[in-house]
Amino acid sequence: KAKLLVLLYAFVATDADTICIGYHANNSTDTVDTILEKNVAVTHSVNLLEDSHNGKLCKLKGIAPLQLGKCNITGWLLGNPECDSLLPARSWSYIVETPNSENGACYPGDLIDYEELREQLSSVSSLERFEIFPKESSWPNHTFNGVTVSCSHRGKSSFYRNLLWLTKKGDSYPKLTNSYVNNKGKEVLVLWGVHHPSSSDEQQSLYSNGNAYVSVASSNYNRRFTPEIAARPKVRDQHGRMNYYWTLLEPGDTIIFEATGNLIAPWYAFALSRGFESGIITSNASMHECNTKCQTPQGAINSNLPFQNIHPVTIGECPKYVRSTKLRMVTGLRNIPSIQYRGLFGAIAGFIEGGWTGMIDGWYGYHHQNEQGSGYAADQKSTQNAINGITNKVNSVIEKMNTQFTAVGKEFNNLEKRMENLNKKVDDGFLDIWTYNAELLVLLENERTLDFHDLNVKNLYEKVKSQLKNNAKEIGNGCFEFYHKCDNECMESVRNGTYDYPKYSEESKLNR
């Protein structure tokens, strides 16, 4: 008799109507990190870190770059004969040098303040090359056809396309004075040089004057150069050297050249137009028929994500570079809930034993079982409120962090190594801060989002509990077992918050 009662009780308990509160689960393989956990499985997430590029040089917003090819900045601007293909260059979106560009200054020497000139050019998007001192009329008392084997072109001695090597005419090199007034309405880049012979005999042979000088002056520039005559090792078949100089001439300003020898005179100059998204990159990537809004030396990035880990040097509207390998923000729920887990921000989770793959029309909802059958029903209101809140948060985070910009490298010469090392340390410090901030932001927001979901499920549970009161009992896994019969209409009233407690209280009292 006792065995019969136990079996009867078990049958009745199993047959009781139930309603459970749960949440969506799926077959997603997404994982995120939080402050407290690593690799948390979630139903949905968004990636904030771009880690792919196309490996190509592309047009930037429809404008092609200027590819210097086998030449570098120095060779292009001075007019190395091997860089003749660059003479027609007028406009570009950015400038590309190759790491091993070999054609710079063909006659050995240095372009002074080269690093600063590169910085200036990094904001130039177009130029006009014009004859600042016409070759045939500007130097009537001097020979202007100086050439050298060091600047050979097609097997013949030649010289820079933008400079003139002035030497004596006959047996004399009379003092020369020439000036140019900038009437271009924009900055003009003027380049010139000073020749330093290897011996007094060479000085006399070329310029006749043993104590020659070169003077260059404008409103913002004033220097006097004296040739340094000295024996030097042979470089590119030359014992002599040429140093090259430049200045930016403001609109309306005048530049005056005065010399008694050794002047490498300007022939062509450049009127410059600035462009905020221009820059110089060093890259071996090849040019393709493609378009982008962000270019790196590795390749083009076409992404609206706020961060990238491809390269710190970028041109155009680019994500911020960070050292992170993963920045994924959760938008959905835990896919593998932890039992009795309390989140960092106070939300209680884990009283549900598992997510439901059968509930596909919402994030949170119900599963019921009664004599009429069983089924899932999503709670659309709480789901939609959660979707709206999380979507707004993700968009806000992306908008705040998605300050796209150009980031170019800084140039230092060989004598500025300590400054370069200090600059690298400062840049590394800023990069570490950006990386830390980005990672911390994602970790915190992921923790908040998961706790937010847990709290929403808990609130749904409490909503049902407050309606049923003692007409049902909690069975410990997020479910309630009714003390009365609850048909589909009754189940719907529980879900929509209109459950009639008094209607079922007498039946429940008897069954309790």
Rank of each mutant, 00 (worst) to 15 (best):
A2R: 02
A2Q: 10
L7T: 12
L7D: 02
A10L: 15
T14K: 03
T14A: 12
A16M: 09
D17E: 13
I21F: 05
H24W: 04
D30P: 01
D30N: 10
T31G: 10
V32D: 15
D33N: 13
T34G: 05
N39V: 08
T43K: 13
H44G: 08
S45W: 15
N47A: 00
S52I: 02
H53F: 00
K56C: 06
K56E: 00
L57V: 03
K59R: 15
K61N: 15
G62I: 01
P65H: 11
L66G: 01
L68W: 09
L68C: 02
C71E: 04
C71Y: 08
N72F: 01
G75Y: 04
W76G: 07
W76F: 06
L77G: 06
L78A: 10
E82R: 03
S85C: 07
L87R: 01
L87K: 13
A89D: 12
S91F: 13
W92R: 00
Y94A: 03
T98L: 11
P99S: 05
A105P: 15
A105V: 15
C106I: 06
C106P: 02
P108M: 04
L111F: 13
D113T: 02
D113M: 10
E115F: 08
E116G: 09
L117W: 07
L121W: 07
L121M: 10
S123W: 01
V124A: 14
E128R: 05
I132G: 04
F133I: 05
E136F: 06
E136R: 01
E136A: 15
S137K: 05
S138Q: 14
S138T: 15
P140N: 10
N141T: 04
N141V: 07
N141G: 09
N141C: 09
H142F: 12
G146P: 09
T148H: 02
V149P: 00
V149I: 06
S152F: 02
S152N: 14
R154L: 14
R154C: 01
S158K: 12
Y160S: 05
R161Y: 08
N162M: 04
L166N: 04
K169E: 13
S172A: 10
P174F: 09
T177R: 06
S179V: 14
Y180R: 00
V181R: 10
K186V: 12
L189R: 01
L191C: 02
W192V: 10
G193I: 00
H195W: 09
S198K: 08
Y207H: 12
G210R: 03
V216R: 05
S218Y: 09
S218C: 14
S218I: 05
N220L: 15
Y221F: 15
R223E: 12
V235R: 10
Q238I: 08
H239F: 07
N243P: 03
Y244L: 04
I255M: 15
I256G: 07
F257H: 04
T260E: 12
L263K: 02
F270G: 01
F276I: 10
E277T: 07
E277A: 14
I280Y: 06
T282R: 12
